[in-house]
C-alpha cells in the first residue's frame, strides 16, 4: 500500500510544485516525555508542511525537541496529540519510504562500506537484483565522492567520509523522505561546507523531500528552501523563513547581502526562542 506511491512525483522537480499536496504534513503535534518529575512537554502545537521535493531545515535552541521531531516523522514514536502525514497517509509506524542519517554515522564496523550502504535493502523489499543493488550503491558512493572506498571498513575512513557513506545508505532504497538529524554537526567547518555541496549534487541526481535538523544557520539557508524556527521547550513553530534561492547554490551565495539579511533574521528569531532577546539586540 505504501510502495504504490513511491517515485510518483520524484522525477526531477526540485522546486515547489504548484498545487501539489504536501508530502510531509505535521499538524498540531504535541508530545511530552514521562519523567520522574512528571510529564516534560517537548513539542507543543507544531505545524510544518513540506511539499513534494521540498527541503525544510528546522532550527531551534538546544534541547527543544528537534530530534523528537525526526523520530515522529520516521514513525519511531507516536505523538501524544496531533498527526503526522506522509504522502497523504497518516503515519502509524515505521515506513520503508523513509531514509535517515544522524550526527553519528552509525556504520557497522564489521561490514565494508559497500555492504553498509546495501544494509537497508536487506530489510526493505526491493525489486532490484543483487547486481543492480550493488551498481546503485556504487553509483551513490561515486556521487558523494567515495569511489574506490567500497571495500574499505568504516574504521579506515575519516569522519566526513563516514558521513558520506551514511548518506548513501539513507538513499539506497530510494526513499521519498530523507530525514537528516544534524548530519554534519560533528564535522570540521571545511568538511561541512564540502558536504553541503555534495548534498546539492545528490539532490539533483536523486530527488527527495528532505527535513534537516541543524544548529547551523548558514547550513539551513544554504541547503533548504524553507527554514522553520522552533521556540524553546516546549517547541512551537515560531517563525518560517522562505529562502529565495531554491535549488543548487554556491558557497559564494552565502556572502551576499540577501544571505546576510536572512541570517540576521534567523539569529534574531533564535534569540527570541532562547528567551533572551530584546528587539534592539537582535537587529544589531
Amino acid at each position: 500500500m505504501v510502495s504504490d506511491q513511491r517515485g510518483v512525483g520524484c522525477a526531477g522537480d526540485t522546486g515547489f510544485g504548484g498545487g501539489m499536496q504536501n508530502l510531509i504534513e505535521i499538524k498540531g503535534v504535541k508530545h511530552a516525555y514521562q519523567t520522574d518529575a512528571g510529564p516534560l512537554p517537548v513539542l507543543d502545537g507544531l505545524e510544518i508542511s513540506v511539499p513534494e521535493g521540498g527541503f525544510v531545515a528546522v532550527v531551534g535552541p538546544s534541547g527543544c525537541g528537534k530530534s523528537t521531531l525526526t523520530r515522529l516523522i520516521a514513525g519511531l514514536m507516536k505523538p501524544d496529540e496531533g498527526e503526522v502525514w506522509l504522502h497523504g497517509e497518516k503515519v502509524k509506524g515505521p515506513r520503508s519510504t523513509v531514509g535517515m542519517a544522524f550526527q553519528n554515522p552509525v556504520l557497522l564496523e564489521w561490514r565494508t562500506i559497500l555492504k553498509n550502504v546495501l544494509l537497508p535493502l536487506e530489510i526493505v523489499p526491493s525489486k532490484l537484483s543483487r547486481k543492480q543493488a550493488e551498481d546503485r550503491a556504487r553509483f551513490l558512493l561515486s556521487l558523494v565522492g567515495l569511489e574506490g572506498f567500497e571495500d574499505k571498513r568504516p574504521s579506515e575512513l575519516s569522519g566526513g567520509m563516514r558521513q558520506r557513506a551514511s548518506l548513501c545508505r539513507a538513499l539506497i532504497h530510494q526513499p521519498d523522505v530523507l530525514i537528516l538529524d544534524e548530519p554534519f554537526g560533528a564535522l570540521d567547518a571545511f568538511t561541512r561546507e564540502d558536504l553541503w555541496q555534495t548534498m546539492h549534487r545528490v539532490k539533483e541526481r536523486e530527488p527527495f523531500t528532505g527535513v534537516l535538523i541543524t544548529h547551523d544557520l548558514r547550513e539551513s539557508i544554504f541547503l533548504a528552501d524553507q527554514v522553520v524556527v522552533l521556540s524553546g521547550r516546549p517547541a512551537r513553530t515560531q517563525y518560517v523563513l522562505d529562502v529565495p534561492s531554491s535549488g543548487p547554490r554556491t558557497l559564494e551565495d552565502l556572502y551576499t547581502a540577501v544571505a546576510a539579511e536572512q541570517l540576521n533574521i534567523l539569529r534574531h528569531q533564535i534569540q527570541i526562542a532562547q528567551g533572551r532577546s530584546t528587539a534592539g539586540e537582535g537587529a544589531a
Binding site: G75, P94, S96, M100, N104, V106, P120, I123
Partner: peptide
C-alpha cells in the same frame, strides 16, 4: 546506541532482525 536500532527500525525491521544484523555482531 539507540541510533543503531533506529537505522533498522525506521525501515520496519523486527526486533529479531535488529538482533541478528546489529546487536549480535556488535
Amino acid at each position: 546506541e539507540p541510533e543503531y536500532r533506529d537505522i533498522l527500525r525506521s525501515l520496519g525491521a523486527s526486533q529479531a532482525t535488529i538482533f541478528w544484523k546489529i546487536a549480535l555482531p556488535k
